[in-house]
Amino acid sequence: MRVRRFGELEAVIMDRVWDRDEPTTVRGILDEISAEREIAYTTVMSTMDNLHRKGCLERERVGKAYWYQPTLSREQYSASLMHEALHGGGRSDLVLAYFVEQIDAEESAGLRAALRLRRDLPQPKPTESLSQQQ
Rank of each mutant, 00 (worst) to 15 (best):
Y98K: 10
F99L: 14
G89K: 12
R61L: 15
L51H: 05
F99Q: 01
K64L: 10
R61D: 02
K64E: 08
T42A: 03
G89L: 15
V44P: 04
R53I: 10
K64I: 10
R53E: 14
E75Y: 07
E75S: 11
R61A: 05
V95Y: 01
G63E: 04
G90I: 09
T47G: 01
Y98A: 11
Y98F: 11
D49T: 15
C56A: 13
V95E: 04
P70E: 14
Y41V: 09
P70R: 01
N50H: 11
P70S: 13
A40D: 12
A65G: 08
P70W: 03
L72A: 11
A85Q: 02
G63W: 00
M48D: 07
T43F: 03
V95A: 01
T43W: 00
D49F: 11
R91V: 07
T43N: 01
E58F: 03
F99T: 15
A79L: 15
M45W: 06
E58V: 12
H87M: 08
G90S: 06
L94P: 08
R91P: 06
R91Q: 14
T42K: 00
N50T: 14
T42S: 05
S73G: 14
A85S: 04
G63D: 04
D93T: 14
E75L: 13
Q76T: 14
R53M: 07
A65V: 13
S92W: 08
M82D: 01
E58M: 13
R59T: 06
E75M: 11
G88M: 05
A85F: 07
R53D: 12
A97S: 07
G63R: 02
G63L: 02
C56T: 02
A85H: 00
L94F: 12
A65K: 04
L96A: 14
L81S: 03
Y68C: 00
L72E: 13
